[in-house]
């Protein structure tokens, strides 16, 4: 229990670079990378007006629900979902076992272009995600070990 994901500075940077490359090459509006629990790892592009926390939790909920559906039907998973709107469209795909990639695009791009560029970026994204989730335990130096009981008590003395 209490498995813990830690995202370190250097990994965060690599992921963001990969997402940025994908976003620019595919002319997407924005690209997000999150884990299946809805934790946002990276967001690039035109994201100022988007509530990214909500986007991440709704996407994760959606993936969990479709994953449940897939199992029910004897499929392992539905790896790609596309929702096309009048102006904006959204492409959701799984990266390995743990991550979800969300690409928002409009008429500056197309589904075909998104698919093509994603195919090019995918191996490297998968590689980095694999490295993040398979760090040897000794490398995952937790900030929690430095937290004292007093820190926690102080934290809850706010009212």
């Amino acid at each position: 229990m209490n498995t813990q994901t830690a995202l370190f500075e250097e990994d965060s940077k690599r992921l963001t670079e990969l997402c940025l490359k994908l976003q620019q090459e595919s002319y997407a509006k924005a690209v997000f990378l999150l884990d299946k629990d809805g934790q946002l790892l990276s967001s690039v592009g035109e994201v100022e007006e988007i509530d990214t926390t909500s986007l991440a939790s709704l996407t994760a909920g959606n993936i969990a629900a479709t994953g449940g559906l897939a199992k029910l039907l004897g499929e392992r998973e539905f790896p790609v979902q596309v929702h096309e709107g009048e102006v904006e469209s959204i492409h959701i795909s799984l990266v390995g076992e743990r991550l979800i990639l969300v690409i928002l695009f409009d008429n500056r791009s197309s589904l075909g272009l998104i698919r093509l560029k994603l195919k090019h970026s995918y191996p490297e994204l998968l590689q980095v995600s694999h490295e993040i989730f398979n760090k040897p335990p000794e490398e995952v130096r937790s900030v929690f070990s430095q937290i004292s009981d007093d820190d926690i008590d102080d934290f809850f003395s706010f009212d």
């Binding site: 229990m1 209490n2 498995t3 813990q4 994901t5 830690a6 993040i132 989730f133 398979n134 760090k135 040897p136 335990p137 490398e139 995952v140 937790s142 929690f144 070990s145 937290i147 009981d149 926690i152 934290f155 809850f156 009212d159």
Partner: peptide
Amino acid sequence: VFDTLKAVAKQVLVELKRGDRHRAP
């Protein structure tokens, strides 16, 4: 309502700090 939230949140932090079941992600 807030008593409940604070209690569970505190337990979560204490548990994370204890970290004895802490594994690599």
